[in-house]
Each structure stands twice: as C-alpha cells, then as structure tokens.
Amino acid sequence: MNKKSLFNKVYIKSSFDRETSAKVFDYYFEELKKIVICDRLLLMDEIGVFEVEHRPMTTVKDLKKGAEILLPPKDKIKFRPSESLINALKD
C-alpha cells in the first residue's frame, strides 16, 4: 500500500475536506519524524515503538576473506512492533 491509497481510504472516512485531510495526513507523519529525531523515542499504541539506537565504533571481520573493517559509530532507528500488532497478525 502506498501513501495515496492509504490517504484515499482515510479521506473516505474522515469528515474533513480533501485538502485539509491531506495536510493533516502529511503533518501527522512530519510530527512523528520530529519526535523521533528530538526525543529519540516514539510510542504508537497499536503499532509499536520507534527508538534511536547508538552503535559504537566496531570492527567487523569478513569471515570469508578475512578482512577487518572498522565501522564508525552510528545512530540508527529501530522499530519494535507492539504485542497487539503481533497478535493481530497471528489471526
């Protein structure tokens, strides 16, 4: 499902007009991004948790070729689905 199809489905059930619903839709995800960047944590009740993880500088070894690679530190976004979502998918 892409953004357009999702928006159409939401727009059908919403009470707003198309422009406002589109604006609200975009703004909602922009707010989610801001929260993740600033707070490094986002809790969505029925979906899951977005968390920013810090990976320190590590050395990785290629087992096949024996090459050691030095990876720099990095901040990653990690998503953990909620239990309700996993249970919903089980059904």
């Binding site: 290629d62 090459a67 030095l70 720099p72 901040d75 976004i77 979502l85 998918l89």
Partner: peptide, 30 residues
Amino acid sequence: VAFSPARKFADSVNDDFSDLVPEIISAGSL
C-alpha cells in the same frame, strides 16, 4: 512488522556521524 526508515530520515537521525566512512584495517585475502 519491520520498518526501514527513509534515507533523509535516517541521515537526519545520524547527523552527528554522517561524515565517517568505514575503513579496511587488514585486507586479508581481499
């Protein structure tokens, strides 16, 4: 459900370490 963030979103999160590049310490048989 797995999530892969968009590049801009990930870069904005990793803004502090975006300049660093992985380096090969020992090539081995490479």
